[in-house]
Amino acid sequence: MSPRTTATRLGVLAAAGALATLGLSGPAAAQDDPDHKGRVTDHKAPATDHRAPVTDYKAPVYKGRVTAKSGLLLRDSPRRGSRVVRSEPHGKVVTIYCKTKGDRVGRTNHWYLLTDGTWAWGSANYIANIGKAPRWC
């Protein structure tokens, strides 16, 4: 469904909800009248979610370069003893989704969630930021 279609449907639902709040009924009320004689019925509009819809949201992209001389082991959680999922070679530019705190490695306890291929955690001690530091998870 396109964002425009979604926005149109949400607009219609919001309008129906506003009419119901005011005690008015919209065109759907005529469908509740089997004789179609224009009687006003007690039509209740469906409950609507008043939170703003998320459309076309793109998380910011953060980049980093692997600085570990022998390559970086990427893990399934931000802990030194967690399972190794894959590795990245020295000098590889990686895409970082966010950062969190985990086990201390070297001088930091920050870990980055990488999104290249499979989602995996790498210690920030071995990833040099390219540009801005990643957001917190």
Results as ranks from 00 to 15, higher is better:
M1T: 13
S2C: 05
S2M: 01
R4P: 00
T6I: 15
T6L: 14
T8E: 14
T8A: 15
T8K: 14
T8F: 13
T8I: 15
G11L: 10
V12L: 14
V12I: 14
L13F: 09
A16T: 01
A20V: 00
T21W: 12
L22K: 15
G23A: 06
L24E: 13
L24G: 07
L24S: 10
L24H: 13
S25K: 08
G26P: 01
A28R: 09
D32L: 15
D33R: 10
P34Y: 06
P34S: 07
D35C: 10
H36I: 09
H36Y: 14
K37V: 15
K37W: 15
R39M: 12
T41H: 13
T41P: 03
D42R: 14
K44F: 09
A45R: 01
A45C: 04
P46V: 12
A47K: 13
A47P: 09
A47G: 10
R51L: 07
A52Q: 09
A52P: 02
T55G: 10
Y57L: 15
A59W: 07
V61C: 04
Y62N: 01
K63T: 13
R65M: 14
V66E: 04
T67S: 11
A68G: 06
A68M: 08
K69T: 14
K69H: 09
K69C: 03
S70G: 07
S70T: 12
S70Q: 13
S70I: 07
L72V: 02
L73M: 11
R75M: 03
D76Y: 02
G81T: 11
V84I: 11
E88W: 02
P89S: 06
P89I: 00
H90G: 01
G91L: 01
V93S: 03
T95D: 06
I96G: 00
C98M: 01
D103Y: 05
V105Q: 09
V105C: 05
R107M: 09
N109V: 02
N109Y: 04
Y112K: 01
Y112N: 03
L113W: 00
L113P: 00
T115P: 02
T115V: 10
T115A: 08
T115Y: 00
G117M: 03
T118P: 06
T118W: 08
W121V: 05
S123D: 02
S123I: 00
A124Y: 04
I130R: 11
A133T: 11
R135F: 03
R135H: 09
R135N: 12
W136I: 04
